[in-house]
Simulated scan of single mutants.
Amino acid sequence: MPNSTTVRQPAAPTGADTAFVREHTSPAPVPSVPEVRLHMAEDAIALWETTESARGEIGLPPPFWAFAWAGGVAVARYVLDHPETVAGKSVLDLAAGSGLVGIAAALRGAASVRAAEIDAYAVAAIEVNAVANGVRVDAAVEDLLDGDGAPAQVVLAGDVFYERAMAARFLPFLERARARGARVIVGDPGRKYLPRERFTALAAHEVPVVADLEDTALKTTTVWELL
């Protein structure tokens, strides 16, 4: 799952951010994507509260970087099963969260992988997770949604249509990326704001999810390509 809809001033992760990620997560294989190991948290709500305390802010979005969200899991599974999707290509992992999708692309031979997030904790987690998987992912705290993702040849996004305001920003970005020739693939576990008529389904998976955050333990998640 991606960052929040609020556009914040980018701030690079610090050593303290990296230490926070390591302190509150443990490396483990990702369910449904055992080829990848991520630093993940055991208790979503407890980490959410700890993050707010560490930041001194109330009402922060969930710690998307500490869990393998259904949309990202489905896209990562698709990329691992279809390496031709990314092999030899420049890839953008948009709203990257833990970096799962970008790491999968790197494992399948992407020429380069760029991961974009607006949360410094997420970028720190991506860097930690890339090292844990022996791959390179160039992660940065940046909001790209006013552009078109150039020069990436493939744009991958897991679960970016879960809020109306989020969808209103992401869809035009993805359409601009597609218009300039990039292949655009997203993962979606049945969110309300995905305009399905603009996409074609590539695959579907039953994906384990964090029940505390999703109110269920399993979601049918579809991999879509923008037409």
Rank of each mutant, 00 (worst) to 15 (best):
Ala66Leu: 01
Val79Pro: 14
Glu84Met: 09
Glu57Arg: 09
Thr85Pro: 07
Pro83Ala: 06
Gly56Thr: 09
Pro63Cys: 02
Pro63Met: 01
Gly88Ile: 03
Glu49Gly: 04
Ala68Trp: 12
Pro62His: 07
Lys89Pro: 02
Pro62Cys: 00
Ala66Gln: 01
Pro83Arg: 08
Glu84Tyr: 12
Phe64Tyr: 15
Trp65Ala: 02
Glu57Ile: 05
Ser53Arg: 15
Glu84Phe: 12
Gly88Leu: 03
Glu52Phe: 00
Ala70Ser: 15
Val75Arg: 05
Lys89Gly: 04
Trp69Met: 09
Leu80Pro: 08
Ala76Trp: 02
Leu60Phe: 04
Gly56Ser: 08
Glu52Tyr: 00
Ala74Pro: 06
Pro83Ser: 06
Ile58Cys: 05
Trp65Arg: 03
Ala70Leu: 03
Pro63Asn: 05
Ile58Tyr: 05
Arg55Lys: 14
Pro63Tyr: 00
Ser53Asp: 15
Pro63Ala: 07
Ser53Thr: 15
Phe64Lys: 13
Glu84Pro: 10
Leu60Cys: 04
Ala54Gln: 06
Arg55Trp: 12
Leu60Glu: 02
Thr50Pro: 00
Trp65Ile: 02
Trp69Tyr: 06
Arg77Trp: 00
Ala76Lys: 07
Thr51Trp: 08
Gly56Leu: 08
Pro63Gln: 01
Ala74Asp: 10
Trp65Gln: 03
Arg77Ala: 15
Tyr78Met: 07
Thr50Phe: 02
Val75Lys: 04
Pro63Arg: 00
Glu84Thr: 14
Ala76Gln: 10
Thr51Phe: 05
Trp65Pro: 01
Phe64Ser: 13
Trp65Met: 04
Val73Ile: 13
Val73Asp: 04
Gly72Ser: 11
Phe64Pro: 01
Glu57Trp: 02
Ala76Ile: 06
Pro83Leu: 09
Arg55Cys: 07
Gly56Ile: 08
Ala87Gln: 13
Glu52Asn: 13
Thr85Asp: 12
Gly88Asp: 09
Gly59Arg: 11
Ala66Ser: 15
Pro63Val: 10
Val75Ala: 11
Pro62Tyr: 11
His82Ile: 08
Val86Ala: 12
Glu49Pro: 00
Phe67Asn: 03
Pro63Lys: 01
Trp65Cys: 02
Ala68Gln: 06
Val86Ile: 10
Glu57Ser: 03
Pro61Gly: 12
Thr51Leu: 15
Thr85Met: 10
Ser53Pro: 01
Gly56Arg: 13
Thr85Ser: 13
Ala87Ser: 14
Ala54Arg: 08
Gly88Gln: 10
Thr50Trp: 03
Val86Met: 12
Gly71Pro: 07
Ala54Met: 00
Asp81Tyr: 08
Gly72Gln: 10
Ala66Cys: 10
Thr50Asn: 10
Leu60Trp: 00
Lys89Glu: 09
Gly88Pro: 11
Arg77Leu: 11
Thr50Glu: 15
Ser53Trp: 08
Ala87Lys: 14
Val73Lys: 07
Leu60His: 05
Phe67Asp: 00
Trp65Gly: 03
